[in-house]
Design a binder for these strands. Structure first.
Lengths: 105, 105
DNA sequence: TCACCACTGAACCAGATGGTTGACAATATG
DNA sequence: CATATTGTCAACCATCTGGTTCAGTGGTGA
């Protein structure tokens, strides 16, 4: 789908974020991806499906294995959306700085 | 809560993102927030609750009205997480550039 | 005081989510 | 061929989500 809803929803789960950061180090087979997690491979497969639907990774069928590769592009759109708020999360520091500056006078 | 799960989950809904961008223009009463949306005020109230639980806005009770104020700070953590992938979403352009460079030779 | 306004809470509902198990399909490998 | 590996699919389950309606609470203003 690759809209903001599905991107953010895909990122809203520690297991899936963990899968993505794993894929930063290079592509991985689905079975290898599943190993670190204390859940069935079917469950991991479902998470991978969610990430795939969100366009955050691509799956390549190779023999009997599936190879997953990171596709971070949708994250850019999510980041772009968030960046608009940058002024607001720095604001409180600015306010604090202003407050301290005022106090010194 | 203010962890990444709840932050991303809160952002994974167009109505809630819309509420947040509305609050960029300044604080707003809950009833005013609800007006643009084609749903009951109770529904909007629930969305505001989700945002409040995620720490993305604060609610101040003032007489019989509730006034919502943006608190973008949790977004910073979300952005920080996403920024790590910046190299990967530019990568495809780099690859393309490399491909074009290779072709010219 | 009385009526309205702003909002909350509870109950309900349909559908999504995150997990399980078990059966199956397809691809190696001995 | 026989068997193990890799993964999907279907069914099931509990819980969460996003919406509704209705009743109630408490503040405002005529």
């Amino acid at each position: 789908m690759e809209n903001l809803d599905t991107t953010f929803a895909a990122l809203a789960h520690a297991t899936r974020r963990s899968i993505l950061s794993r894929l930063m180090q290079g592509e991985s087979r689905l079975s290898d991806l599943a190993k670190p997690f204390n859940m069935s491979q079917t469950a991991v497969s479902k998470h991978v499906r969610v990430l795939s639907d969100a366009g955050l990774l691509t799956i390549e069928k190779r023999g009997r294995t599936r190879h997953c590769r990171l596709n971070a592009e949708p994250m850019k759109q999510a980041t772009d959306w968030l960046i608009d708020y940058q002024a607001f999360w720095t604001q409180q520091f600015d306010n604090l700085a202003q407050h301290l500056a005022d106090e010194r006078e």
